[in-house]
Amino acid sequence: MKNKNMLVNATMGAAAASFLISEYLFKMAFKRVDYVPETSEGKKKYAERYWKYVDWFQKSNKEHWFLKNEDETERMSAWFIPARNAASKKVAVISHGYKGNGETMANFAKMYYEMGFDVLLPDDRGHGESAGKYISFGWLDRLDYLQWLKKIIERIGNDTQIILFGVSMGASTVAMLSGEKVPAQVKCIIADCGYSSIEEELMFLLKRQFHLPKYPFYPFISTINHHRLGYYLGDVSSVTQLKKNRVPIFFIHGEEDDYVPSYMSLENYRATDAPKELWIVPKATHAESYWINSEVYKKHIQMFLAKYLN
């Protein structure tokens, strides 16, 4: 009996310790951060260029848009940059990465602006000036983006042509959005280095960064997320959503990405039956494809867009 009690106590102790570790991991990954973390050492060589784009963004003529303005706990924020040509009917909706915000996508905003687009830069839940205690990794954000699309069409008109563009978490956000009933004005999607599912991405990072196994931590983290945000992590899947996608989509991924491995874009590519293209960028790490050669990147984008925009 004594040995049995010791075993029960040890099992309960191990379960309690696993839960506490899972709670710590959840907060570290999902809790809102009200600042943009420093970039990796490998990308600091792009800092001077990056800050020039931010300076352009800050000085640009723009409008501050909101959703759910009546409720500050749910209010979503976005910046809208009108095109040079007031008669433009093309809008690029740009989705930012993990712990970023609309401003951190200034280089892409300028690229699309110079291509003649209006640009909308939302702050996702738990990021920037949008509300939210926790990061939803694109899953709840996809529903907010449906509202942003509605707002764009109301502003620009029914003959608007919209493209969805995202990098990293933003790529997964627009991929997951594609599985919803998006308006006909959405003509194509570009997803740069997105994950195939949050489960697969978290398990990759759990092993790579913490050398921890999937069990028992993943079920605890998923349960905590369900309690806080209302869904299990198994629901957050680009692959599942892309199976319902009917919008042309272009996947981009760095060949040497060690944060979101490039095989995830292959999984996303295989999942959709819509017109699709895939570009694996040689020598590029995570979210580096643009920075390695921005002109080549822009040309790939333009060639894709030319097939689907008037």
Rank of each mutant, 00 (worst) to 15 (best):
G194A: 09
E199K: 13
A191Y: 05
F210N: 11
I198R: 00
T223N: 12
R208D: 14
H253N: 04
K207Q: 13
T223H: 12
I224Q: 08
Y232K: 14
Y218D: 03
Y195V: 02
Q209C: 08
H253K: 08
D192V: 01
I189V: 11
S238L: 02
F251V: 09
F251L: 07
F250P: 06
Q241G: 03
L205C: 07
Q241D: 09
I224G: 11
L206E: 08
R246P: 01
H226K: 15
V236G: 05
N245W: 06
I249G: 04
I189D: 03
H227M: 14
Y195S: 09
S238P: 06
D192A: 07
F250V: 07
L205N: 13
E200G: 11
F204V: 05
S222Y: 09
L212D: 02
V239Q: 02
E199L: 03
F251E: 00
N245V: 08
Y215C: 09
S196D: 03
R246Y: 13
I190D: 08
L233D: 02
P219N: 04
Y195K: 08
F250S: 09
E201M: 05
V236C: 11
N225T: 15
S196I: 09
C193H: 05
Q209W: 12
S237D: 00
N225P: 11
V239P: 03
N225V: 04
K207L: 00
L212Y: 08
E199V: 12
T240I: 09
V236L: 07
E255G: 02
V236Y: 01
E200I: 05
Q209H: 11
I189H: 01
H227F: 15
R228P: 10
A191D: 04
P216G: 10
N225Y: 13
I252Y: 05
S197Q: 05
N225G: 07
V236F: 00
T223C: 11
N245K: 02
I198W: 07
L242I: 04
A191H: 05
P213F: 00
Y215T: 13
S238W: 05
P219A: 08
E199S: 10
G254P: 00
L229M: 15
E201L: 14
L212P: 08
S238M: 00
Q209Y: 03
L205E: 09
Y195P: 09
D235Y: 05
S237L: 10
K214M: 10
